[in-house]
Amino acid sequence: MSNTPLVQVEHLTRYYSQTRAVNDVSFNLARGEVLGFLGPNGAGKSTSMQIITGNLAPSAGQISIDGVDLLDQPKQAKQAIGYLPEQPPVYRELTVDEYLQYCARLNRIPRSRIGAAVATAKDRCGLGDVARRLIGNLSKGYQQRAGIAQAIIHNPAVVILDEPTVGLDPIQILEIRALISELGKEHGIILSTHILPEVQATCNRVQIIHHGRLVFSDSTSGMAHRHATTSLIAVFNNAPDVDSLSQVNGVERVEPLEDGHMRIHYSDTDPAEALVEQAATQQWRLCELTPERRTLEQIFIELTCSEAPLHEDAA
């Protein structure tokens, strides 16, 4: 049982009349994994999430949650899912306590454990102070938290959060990120977001979806390795010419930039040490040396801005 992935999605496709919103998406989610789902607006993130949670039926493909097929045994499969949609599904006319009690009952928590489950969920999402207030009167941030509390109240194996930190203030965002990391220890989490640093902070795997296709999937640590530095930015007060810089061991190419900045490309060995040594002996007066990281943002932009070929493919 421990080998079966928590969520197994195979060849998921979904049409909205003629438009293919999700196109042959397959992935797995293991226990203890936090998966970040990235993509520009309208890429199919929310649709995929709605399908995985049973809110939409796929046009083709298979989904199993904790080894249970979502389409064949929806009730059993849904028991293992907690879902926060884009818009928190809260009833404005109920208080936070009433709402969470209702959610607890809907998720078939035994009557004797409802009180404890509500208390834990409130505690985890910091809702203690507003427990008796009407949800309609709360700020967007608190409504969002009530939505998250609802998703985790039955302690589901899989928690699916669609843009969970929208509308929260910076401190709440940190709290929610901490909560997500904590939940990620024992549960599997799928998280969609626009905020790239959030993915780097909380997720251990990233997927980028574009035009309904999965165009990138990697672990965050693997990404740091694979897309590691391939260039340095150096600033010299007494800049040498390009040729003498190129002589330095390991340097492949030197690209002069404005303001005395130099971009130094390399492939195998990092020339940083050699550079510093040379700079010291030749008195280039090196005053800045920064490795240029290929950030998630760059990868994201690279993948999602190359629209033309993907578009042809999808059509």
Partner: peptide
């Protein structure tokens, strides 16, 4: 309209 239907759809309910 309020999107609360997804609360019911994602709960183990028929």
């Amino acid at each position: 309209r309020n999107g609360t239907i997804s609360l019911l759809f994602s709960a183990p309910l028929s």
